[in-house]
Amino acid sequence: MSFKSIVRGLRDMKVRIGNISRTVAERKHRSNRTVCRIVPDVALSDTVEGRWASLPPKLLMDIIHRLEESEASWPARAVIVCCASVCKSWREITKQIVKTPEECCRLTFPISLKQCFVKRDRAKSVYRLYFGMTPFATVSYEAILEHAPRKMHCAMHSIPFSSIQEVGSAPKPTSLPRSFDEKSSSTPLSKAKDISSTVTAQEPLVLKSKAPWWNEKVQGWCLHFKGRVTVAAVENFQLLAAVDACHNIPVTEQDKVILQFGKIGEDIFTMDYCYPLSAFQAFAICLSAFGPFI
């Protein structure tokens, strides 16, 4: 052990030094004893900064490890990302500690996984759907009247309204600035820039639920699902584009169902979707239909 050998070596030298100790209440001074001179550690600095910028990496690792262990879920887990943002050496240490989601079942850095999440506003029955850090849709449910079907409103922040305007020469999904297939093939960072600029520049596509009609015969609200939905359920819906007169969309297009979802058995539902929605977006919207109890 190097420390012991230093002490031993110094003891052997029997260097005598005078009384240089300051008076401290607890100190006991022995008059006739050999005192060893210890070579000052050059790495030690008197400035606080010098001392703590070099907190032993082992200790820093211990501290960050404790945070990683205790903060298993978001939003508390943000602290791990914060640690990684302090400086380069902290980032390195944090990255060593954080395991991949496959290994530890915890999400930390977006790079480790495409993180998607749903933010629910229970009181307002609003669901914000996120792909990565970007909201791609906001689905809200509204009960207009008692015993009448709830209304759905779905703002697709990721799809410009123009995507349904160019009838006949509709842009292919891959050419959409915020198509998710395209997004996953490029780096999240460069894409994040595109998204934020697109989002403000273009009017988003808004979907609304098709209003059902009252069927006297069955004493209930009805929608035509063309045989794809067979069981009456609160979850059943059809979404159309919400169109203004100024958009110049032909009536036939206005009536086009972009997404429909409905029950066909006790625990089985069908989903039909078409351009400009992706399967991912369509599924996410449909799943939100199970949420609100209105």
């Binding site: 978001w74 990302v81 999240p188």
Partner: peptide, 15 residues
């Protein structure tokens, strides 16, 4: 670099 990190980890800096 810092702005890049913040953007990539936006969810961590929301609170």
């Amino acid at each position: 670099e810092e702005a890049k990190i913040r953007k990539a980890n936006a969810q961590a800096f929301e609170g």
